[in-house]
């Protein structure tokens, strides 16, 4: 009984996911692209960078990368804390 309940819930969730993917806007036609047009047009003028993705990661959205580096540092610290030698 519980098994069938779980299967029904999973089928419902997966159906919603796939229905949402089908009913989304057409693939290859993003609707709101003003911000990306700005980045593409001005990344060479403002930052002298050929790679627009690197310009976004390290300059336009540098706060995101700072938080990401913090997350990586926290993960390494957590792994080092968990996996310390308990018995010497």
């Amino acid at each position: 009984m519980k098994w069938w309940l779980a299967l029904a819930a999973f089928c419902l969730a997966a159906g919603f996911l796939i229905f949402g993917a089908v009913a989304l806007r057409p693939f290859g036609e993003p609707r709101y692209r003003e911000m990306d047009e700005y980045f593409i047009r001005f990344s060479q003028a403002e930052l002298a960078a050929n790679n627009v993705v690197t310009a976004i990661v390290f300059d336009y959205r540098g706060y995101d990368t700072l938080g990401e580096a913090t997350v990586l540092f926290t993960a390494v610290t957590g792994v080092a804390l968990i996996l310390r030698r308990l018995k010497k």
Partner: peptide
């Protein structure tokens, strides 16, 4: 020889990721 601080930040983050994943 372009792009200002972006290559320096690339080196900093590269060393950070190398050391972090290696330590894990």
């Amino acid at each position: 020889n372009t792009a200002g601080t972006l290559p320096l930040m690339n080196w900093a983050v590269g060393f950070k990721v190398l050391a972090g994943l290696g330590a894990v």
